[in-house]
C-alpha cells in the first residue's frame, strides 16, 4: 500500500465528500467515514479521527462567513455548547467501550436519519411567545430579512439542551458534526427561525468537534498522514460546493447525492452486522 496513489485517491474522494456535504447540507463528516472505511479499508478509529479534523475545518471556515451576515445567535450557541461539549466528551468515552462494528451500525442509522431530515425540507416556525428562561438568558434576538431585522423568541430551552447532549454524544462517538440533529433541536424544539438554526448549528459544530478531537488526538486516533489529504480535500470540496450553490439550482443533484448517502448508510449497517469492522 506504500504508494503515492492511495493518498491522492483519498484526497480526491475527500473533495467529493466535502462537495456532497455542502450540497446536502449534512457536512463532510457523514460521507468521509463511510468513504474511508468502505472504499479504502481504513480502520474506523482512524477514519473517525480524520473526519473530526475535517469537520472542524469546514465548520470554522463556513462560520467565519455566516457570523458576519448576522444570522447566528451567539448566545444560544454558547449556552448550548455546554450541552454539546458534555455530550461530545461522553461520546468519546463511549467509543472506547463500544465495538467498532456496533459503531458502524449506529453510524449507518444516524446517516439514514440525517438523509431523511434533509429530504423533509424547510418548515418555517410560526409566531412564538416569550419564555421566561430565554429572557433570563437574554436569548431573544433578531435576524436580517429583505424588509429589515425580524424579532423572534426562543422557546423550550430544557428540551433543546437535552437533544443537544445527544447530538454531542453522536458527534463524539461517530466523528460527525451532527448538524441535522442540532438544527432539529433549535428549529423544531426551540422554535428558532430556520436560517438562524442552520447557521448557529454550523457555528457550534467546531466547538463540539474540538472537544472530542482533543480526546482522539490524545488517544492516538488522529494520524497525520491520513488526516492531511482528508482535511485539505474536504476543505477544497466544501468551498467548491459553496460557490456552486450560489450559482446554480441543484435540486436534481441533491436528490442524486441523497441516494448516494442512502446507499452508504445501508452499506455501513450491513458491513457492521456482518462484522467487517
Amino acid at each position: 500500500m506504500g504508494t503515492i496513489e492511495q493518498p491522492l485517491l483519498i484526497a480526491l474522494g475527500s473533495i467529493l465528500a466535502g462537495f456532497i456535504g455542502v450540497l446536502t447540507g449534512l457536512g463532510g463528516g457523514v460521507v468521509i467515514v463511510p468513504l474511508l472505511t468502505l472504499v479504502f479499508g481504513v480502520d474506523i478509529r482512524y477514519a473517525i479521527g480524520a473526519s473530526l479534523v475535517s469537520v472542524i475545518a469546514t465548520s470554522s471556515s463556513a462560520a467565519a462567513t455566516y457570523v458576519k451576515e448576522g444570522y447566528s445567535n451567539l448566545r444560544v450557541g454558547m449556552f448550548l455548547e455546554i450541552a454539546t461539549t458534555m455530550g461530545a466528551l461522553s461520546g468519546a468515552f463511549l467509543a472506547l467501550w463500544i465495538a467498532p462494528r456496533v459503531i458502524a451500525v449506529i453510524f449507518g442509522l444516524a446517516l439514514l436519519h440525517s438523509a431523511y431530515t434533509s429530504w423533509q425540507g424547510i418548515k418555517e416556525s410560526t409566531e412564538t411567545k416569550a419564555d421566561r428562561l430565554a429572557q433570563m438568558l437574554g436569548m431573544d434576538s433578531t435576524y436580517p430579512t429583505p424588509v429589515g431585522p425580524k424579532f423572534y423568541h426562543v422557546q423550550n430551552i430544557p428540551g433543546g439542551f437535552l437533544l443537544m447532549m445527544v447530538a454531542g454524544a453522536l458527534s463524539g462517538l461517530l466523528g460527525i458534526g451532527s448538524g441535522a440533529l442540532k438544527v432539529i433541536a433549535m428549529d423544531r424544539i426551540m422554535k428558532l427561525p430556520f436560517k438562524v438554526s442552520t447557521t448557529t448549528s454550523n457555528f457550534m459544530i467546531g466547538v463540539t468537534a474540538a472537544a472530542s478531537a482533543g480526546i482522539y488526538l490524545n488517544r492516538g486516533y488522529i494520524d497525520p498522514l491520513l488526516a492531511m489529504p482528508v482535511m485539505l480535500g474536504v476543505l477544497l470540496g466544501a468551498s467548491i460546493g459553496t460557490h456552486w450553490l450560489m450559482k446554480s439550482r441543484t435540486k436534481s443533484l441533491r436528490i442524486l447525492f441523497g441516494i448516494v448517502i442512502l446507499i452508504l448508510a445501508v452499506e455501513m449497517i450491513f458491513n457492521g452486522i456482518e462484522g467487517r469492522f
Binding site: 500500500m1 506504500g2 504508494t3 503515492i4 492511495q6 493518498p7 474511508l36 479504502f40 479499508g41 481504513v42 480502520d43 478509529r45 482512524y46 477514519a47 488526538l217 490524545n218 488517544r219 492516538g220 486516533y221 488522529i222 494520524d223 497525520p224 498522514l225 491520513l226
Partner: peptide, 19 residues
C-alpha cells in the same frame, strides 16, 4: 517519496504525536 503506512490496522500513534 511515498506516503507509507496503510491504515487498515489500528496501531495508534506514537507518543510524540499524541500530546
Amino acid at each position: 517519496g511515498t506516503v507509507g503506512p496503510a491504515f487498515a490496522h489500528f496501531k495508534g500513534e506514537p507518543e510524540r504525536l499524541k500530546d
